[in-house]
Amino acid sequence: MSLNDLLKAVCAEFKSHFPSLRTCEPHGGRFDLQELKRISTKAPAVFVAILGTGKVKEVGSGEVDIPVSLAAFVVTKTEGKLPCAESALNVAEGLLTRIPGSNWACDGVFGADPATAKNLYSGTIASKGVAMWAVTWTQKVRMGEDAFRTDLPFPSELYVGQSPNVGDGHEGDYMQVEVGA
Rank of each mutant, 00 (worst) to 15 (best):
L96N: 11
A112G: 15
G101P: 07
G80N: 10
A117D: 10
T76E: 12
R98L: 15
E86W: 07
R142S: 14
F148V: 04
K140N: 15
P100D: 08
M143P: 00
P153L: 04
R149I: 05
V91C: 01
L89A: 14
A117W: 00
G101D: 07
F148Q: 10
G111T: 11
G80D: 11
T97W: 08
T76C: 15
I99H: 02
E79D: 14
I99C: 06
L120M: 15
S102V: 06
D113V: 05
T138C: 09
A117H: 04
Q139N: 07
A147Q: 12
T124L: 13
L82S: 09
R142L: 08
W137V: 08
P153M: 03
S87R: 15
L95P: 06
V109F: 00
V130S: 02
G80Y: 11
T78N: 10
G94Q: 14
R98I: 06
W104E: 02
E79M: 14
E79K: 15
K140S: 14
W137R: 03
S127F: 02
A134G: 03
L158M: 14
D113G: 04
A105L: 09
W104K: 04
G144I: 03
E79R: 14
Q139T: 11
A105N: 14
A112N: 02
V135Q: 00
S87W: 04
Y121M: 11
A105S: 10
D113P: 02
L152S: 07
L89K: 13
D113A: 14
A105M: 09
T76R: 05
S156W: 02
D151A: 08
V141F: 04
D113Y: 09
C106S: 11
G123L: 05
L89V: 07
E93K: 04
G108R: 01
L96S: 00
T150G: 15
A117V: 05
F110W: 11
P153Y: 01
G108T: 08
